[in-house]
Amino acid sequence: MGSDRVDPTAQKNMASQGMSWITKVRNSLGSLGKRDTPDNLWVKCPGCQEMVFTQAWQDNLSVCPRCAYHGRIGAQARFSQVLDPGFAILTAPSVPENPLNFRDSKKYSDRLKAARAANPYPDALTAAEGAIDGQPVVLAVQDFAFMGGSMGMAVGEAFVRAVERAIERRCGFVMFTAAGGARMQEGILSLMQMPKTTVALRRLSRAGLPYLVVLTDPTTGGVTASYAMLGDVHIAEPGALIGFAGQRVIRDTIREKLPEGFQRAEYLREHGMVDLVVDRHELKATLARLLDYLTRKDVA
């Protein structure tokens, strides 16, 4: 992580966590010597460009042990990092596939096939029900690795189903966002997921249930301009890129240099759009504390 991406508070948080994770990393470094998988033995940190042992990287929740760069992670890793053991993955809904029969340089149906082959879940949003430190919750994760996390009908419908499940269980809903924006290959139908997901959130709100958003790197476009910004509380991971318009588009429009740290988690907090920038190691505990505060005993 370039030092420009390190949030000073995050660094402080890391320091104040004491030695536990450092010890853990050292231990895993020690045990790594015996492994014989040279191909993926090392991870090159996109932040500081240093080589880090894969095992150390993963043991540290895919956060760089050297510079605290928060790497992108998928739904499986999120579920196991945040949910108590024993959670259940919700069935992915079936939606119309390639309704516009879209093709650019490739057919959309082929792009979908390739994404499914490379990813564990059938589309970019996967939800699970379980608990966080004993508090019941439905949690959904958008995975940037699946077509840039883009929001199409499958994402919108899975989001709505997850919210409906939270209403049924009378529990909070936690959403981890990550997306380049809408799924252009579904044209206007992807744009319509903005009001559609908002409808679900209005129902959750009417039920008096909390909606916590965790904005992860990157969250941009129509996703930011809908469910990512409608939370009761907005949490962001350190250094995450969060914005409506893309930086290149903005640069082309204003024709000047963008400000330091523009559209990063810390910048959004400074401008009043994000409540908390939370290190991944403290995320589970933070969510649990917030859920506790925001769960009405008279509603449950």
Binding site: P195, T198, M229, F244, V249, I250, I254, P259, H271
Partner: peptide, 22 residues
């Protein structure tokens, strides 16, 4: 798509306007 628009929460404003319609 501009710096001040992002600073003042373009995303949030759009999300809340959509919600206001609904």
């Amino acid at each position: 798509p501009g710096v001040e628009a992002e600073e003042r929460g373009q995303s949030e404003a759009i999300a809340r306007a959509t919600e206001a319609c609904l």
